[in-house]
Amino acid sequence: MTPPAAIAGFDRRAFLKLGVAGTWTLVACSTAATLAGCSTAAPPASGYRWLSTEDLALFSALLPAVNGPAWPDETSIRDEALRRIDAALAALAPQAQEQTRQLLDLLHWPVFRHLACGLSAPWSRAPAEDIARFLQRWRDSRLELFNAGYRGLAKLAQLGWWSQRASWDACRYPGPPAWAVAALNG
């Protein structure tokens, strides 16, 4: 078990431990995950085109962490957000889908989650503060790879919420001009 103190300087060292020094690519990392027998390759969860059951747990944890107190944490809104994230991923080109798959597989792999994300509990049970710290670390990291991971995850979680009408109050967006909506739909 890695003591918390070691996790603080997590990113460079974590990668060195994974044996991929030199090639900072998700492909290489994910190969390590596969060799370790920890890769998931799980099928989409029922009712979804892309997200696996594990992915659903991950994004359910990320939605409040990324969107902050504006996130309402209501089941119907969470389900709609997950449905939209699922559709957004299914629309990507094959290479982008593959890379996202590799990133998510890594995030599910306990060793990586522990070392690179600083999370000891699985996503479904990780404390909110730990997830917030993970996001901040990946954002602040000097490694392009982690910055890219941060951006990708944040973008999906943002899309899941701020594309829903229910979010408009929280951003003082009045929606399309009411007169136009009335005129167009009248």
Binding site: A65, V66, N67, G68, P69, A70, W71, A132, L135, R139, A154, A157, Q158, W162, A170, C171
Partner: peptide, 9 residues
């Protein structure tokens, strides 16, 4: 992200 994003939005 997080509280900051809520405030930003």
């Amino acid at each position: 992200h997080g509280e900051r994003l809520s405030l930003d939005m």
